[in-house]
């Protein structure tokens, strides 16, 4: 299968001297198109650092990340913005919706930022899948946690990106809502043939994945999967 994500000796170091922390040590791995990879590891192990680096939210100390064959750290800020808005969807533990925009607008925001006219049918379809059609005009603070996270998923899917990067998407949710969210994610990945990389604490959800990467003390190890 085509390797859509390649990392080469990815390192990230914070601080200097005594306070130096190697958050990530020479991580090298590949992910194939359409794969669902989950990343597990204890708190402070470097999971989030890894995910931030994969999404070009942060800059590595050394090493490379190739997304769809392009070296993301070689791009300038504007190229990166465009690349990010078209190719990567982010889902955060804290949802991070824009509180002033309603459900529909939050979902359409990445499209607006890309100067596209939101396709009503596409948004409608997303709302339908997410079970938010009824709440499309609600503001985030009028929604439950599960609903908010579904909006965030909708926002991540709006531009039909190649990658979805999720940082503990179920971290703030109860088990019922968590299961719903996980199902949704799986469904959409399958439907749009997207590549999903997800951090999770819950080992149950790790099993949803095609592959599991473990991170401990900044070292990434392959924990198995059906690849």
């Amino acid at each position: 299968m085509l390797d859509i994500l390649v990392t080469e000796r990815l390192c990230k170091t914070y601080g200097k001297g005594e306070t130096r922390v190697d958050a990530l040590k020479e991580a090298s791995f590949t992910v194939a198109k359409g794969e669902f990879v989950s990343i597990v590891g204890p708190s402070g192990s470097g999971k989030s650092t890894l995910l931030n680096l994969l999404g070009a939210l942060d800059v590595p100390t050394s090493g490379k990340v190739l997304l769809d064959g392009r070296d993301i750290y070689a791009m300038n800020e504007n190229e990166l913005s465009v690349f990010r808005r078209r190719n990567i969807g982010f889902i955060f533990q804290a949802y991070n919706l824009v509180p002033e925009l309603n459900v529909e607008e939050n979902i359409a925001l990445p499209l607006l930022l890309d100067y596209q006219k939101p396709d009503k049918r596409h948004i409608g379809e997303l709302l339908d899948i997410l079970g938010l059609t009824e709440r499309r005009h609600h503001l985030p603070n009028q929604l439950s946690g599960g609903q908010q996270q579904r909006v965030a998923i909708g926002r991540a899917l709006a531009t039909k990106p190649v990658f979805i990067l999720a940082d503990e998407p179920t971290g703030n949710l109860d088990s019922k809502n968590s299961a719903e969210v996980m199902n949704l994610l799986r469904l959409s990945v399958a439907k749009y043939r997207q590549t999903l990389i997800m951090i999770t604490h819950n080992s149950n959800y790790a099993t949803f994945a095609d592959r599991v990467l473990g991170v401990e003390d900044g070292v990434v190890t392959e924990l198995g999967g059906d690849r």
Partner: peptide, 14 residues
């Protein structure tokens, strides 16, 4: 919030 907007693809110019 600005960080978030950048995450979902807003360029600095935007």
């Amino acid at each position: 919030q600005f960080g978030l907007l950048r995450c979902i693809g807003a360029s600095p110019a935007q």
